[in-house]
Design a binder for these strands. Sequence first.
DNA 1: TTTTAATTCTACCTTTAAGTAGTAATTATT
DNA 2: AATAATTACTACTTAAAGGTAGAATTAAAA
Lengths: 137, 137
Amino acid sequence: MQLSKSSQYAIRILAYMVDYKDSKLLNATELSETLLIPYKFLTKIMTEVVKSGLVISIRGRDGGYCFAKPPSEIKVNEILTIFNDSIKDEQCVLGIGFCNGMCKCALHDQWMEPKHLMQKMFQESTLEEIAGRGCKI
Amino acid sequence: MQLSKSSQYAIRILAYMVDYKDSKLLNATELSETLLIPYKFLTKIMTEVVKSGLVISIRGRDGGYCFAKPPSEIKVNEILTIFNDSIKDEQCVLGIGFCNGMCKCALHDQWMEPKHLMQKMFQESTLEEIAGRGCKI
DNA sequence: TTTTAATTCTACCTTTAAGTAGTAATTATT
DNA sequence: AATAATTACTACTTAAAGGTAGAATTAAAA
Ligand code: SF4
Ligand code: SF4
């Protein structure tokens, strides 16, 4: 019952980057050290994030990462989508897979509410919003 | 964002068993075939469920499984506990791990509500209840 | 133009979850 | 007592997630 490490790390990275969105590029070494995320894993993840279009990377000396669009316009769900962790409508706790109106599994009714809350949480929260709360780790 | 296969299967198996709780023992072959769960995996899972004390197994010819206590007294959460899938209070979407009141992660506040709903769902639902709903797969 | 610091690419390694195989132990039936 | 049908045990295999290594590429700065 957790997001994948890739999604977890990506959210933390981008949330951290919000604070520097107008000031400077953040490079992988700095992100890795302050967020305590393995450097090589971080770069692998960020390469995917860059390919998704959320972030721009500048290669070479003095390079780093910055947002491709304002973090106020980036929904958390967009990050999850990159790693295929977005919660789909048909996704079930029990993961049976053939969930339609006809045949629902034993926990279906009670699962709907927390599922929708999580979908809402991910689809409506922007990076800007969540970065404003909590501490920066 | 899903339960482990072990927990998923165990819930389905026990929910199915509720319908036969007073009539007969159910054996692994029958459970495996009707629930489409790999036989060898099913027996492995059931051995753990038996060890947990929720279910009794009768070995040898005409053997099988039956409940050790009425399914109306078995909470879904007891099943999850066997496979270490129970949702702990300190468990986070972002899984950072040092979640205390002092330092909360970016999604903490929004995560609390669905988390509590899921905990409630698992801790309060009995096998009897969930078996009454949905179809038997 | 060389050096240096950065990302990206390709490939691999490690750990965990999921699943399989074979055999031993147990028990009712014949 | 032998047989057949059942669970339990031990060990292995496979697949996926998580993580690492090293070289290639890029671009600023000296
Ligand atoms: S029946 Fe409902 S709870 Fe079960 S798998 Fe389908 S959507 Fe999920
Ligand atoms: S701060 Fe809250 S949401 Fe984040 S890991 Fe801790 S408990 Fe979970």
